[in-house]
Write a protein that binds this DNA or RNA. Structure first.
Lengths: 214, 214
DNA sequence: AACGATACATAACAAACGTTTGGTATGTAC
DNA sequence: GTACATACCAAACGTTTGTTATGTATCGTT
């Protein structure tokens, strides 16, 4: 059953397999090492296969990044787990879960984050990719802001502060922690990352007392 | 014996001019667009000039990054300004100044940060560069920790918390803010970056205001 | 004036790159 | 069975890359 007809699902499935090869090359050799030949070798195929499913290298890369975003973005493990585990209650626990989802707490998350961090160089030099990235982070901030508002309604976070600002700051915090953890994985095991995040959230909840001018 | 060859300073000065060309190419075209010919064209010279001052491309890049680090790292504008302005007092104000120095508050700082963020991809794929980066961030954290300790001694920050953890978290915060500001400069003008940082610092100072003892 | 080192420019080099081309095998439609 | 589209592989294309080789002008020293 190999090399079959064009059932539409097969085509998209094959494109996803190719994207997985792209991920593997990116996470080990970086964008600098992303060549069509490297991806083809990773798949045990030829470059002809790649050009058959994608018009050019940019399309190959864009699709891989979009697919990676869908994987780790629209289906967060901790916010809405796939197994029987119930999701954390709305409000602060769910904000915490969403932020934990970003961190490189295991090897798979580290590989994904390594790709994401690596993509920043090429994205900042390519307006189209830059817009895609900016949109992604804006959407992520909005999602976090919803959790912040929930937490404020429940009294878990001070009600006076700007929810969007809190969400933006929280995302900045985890993004920066990702970078540091990738460069010094030995110094940033999962427990330390979690502890740092919890300390950050405690700082948000702590100064509650009423007015927050500004 | 003095000066049998062209003055040593001239040689190093020329290497720095070359590095400036490297910066210009990196900040506009990214690491993907860093080629010897691009740098040569940027300098209005030939690739022969580059190979005369650097043995190969990696050395060219390493030197440019080290020089960039020395520029923005060992000579922070706000922490120890060059003009007559007095430096901010030790403790929390100086911590704030050091963190502000990281942010892309003007075009020059944005260009430098864009290079730095772009370097992460190639650095994560190159053990030698990765070690250099990890060392840089570790040193930066230590410097921040000193300011945190100062602030704790002065009662500007709660004395109970781990100074290294606070410094690490603060660096994560500004690093992540850098990334978001680079991708959405319109949404993150200097005032907003400063406001977000000040809110973060207020959160650090806030929760212990009364001193719960111990 | 002659010399050797320095400071480049010019040109060539093999390797690697993204892309194109031509071919084969296989499946569906009629 | 003919016709046509899909799914690839293998090879080649022209370009770009980092690097090397060669030439030449300049300058300090003798």
């Amino acid at each position: 059953m190999a090399g079959m007809t064009p059932a539409r699902g097969d085509h998209d499935a094959r494109r996803l397999e190719v994207s997985e090869g792209v991920w593997r090359v990116l996470s080990t050799r970086g964008f600098e090492g992303l060549t069509l030949r490297a991806v083809a070798a990773e798949l045990g195929a030829s470059t002809g296969l790649l050009t058959h499913y994608f018009p050019n290298k940019r399309a190959l890369l864009s699709h891989a990044l979009e697919e990676l975003d869908r994987r780790s973005g629209s289906r967060p493990r901790r916010t809405a787990p796939v197994d029987g585990t119930p999701p954390p209650p709305a409000g602060l626990p769910r904000l915490r879960a969403a932020l934990l989802d970003v961190l490189p707490l295991d090897a798979a998350a580290a590989a994904g984050n390594r790709i994401w961090v690596g993509s920043w160089d090429v994205a900042l030099a390519d307006p189209e990719l830059a817009a895609a990235h900016a949109g992604r982070y804006a959407r992520s901030r909005e999602a976090l802001a919803v959790h912040v508002v929930d937490a404020q309604r429940r009294g878990e976070l001070p009600a006076g502060s700007d929810a969007v600002a809190v969400a933006t700051a929280a995302q900045a915090f985890v993004l920066g922690l990702v970078v540091q953890a990738l460069f010094a994985p030995g110094e940033f095991p999962a427990e330390r990352q979690t502890a740092l995040l919890d300390a950050y959230l405690a700082g948000l909840a702590g100064p509650a007392a009423g007015g927050t001018g500004g």
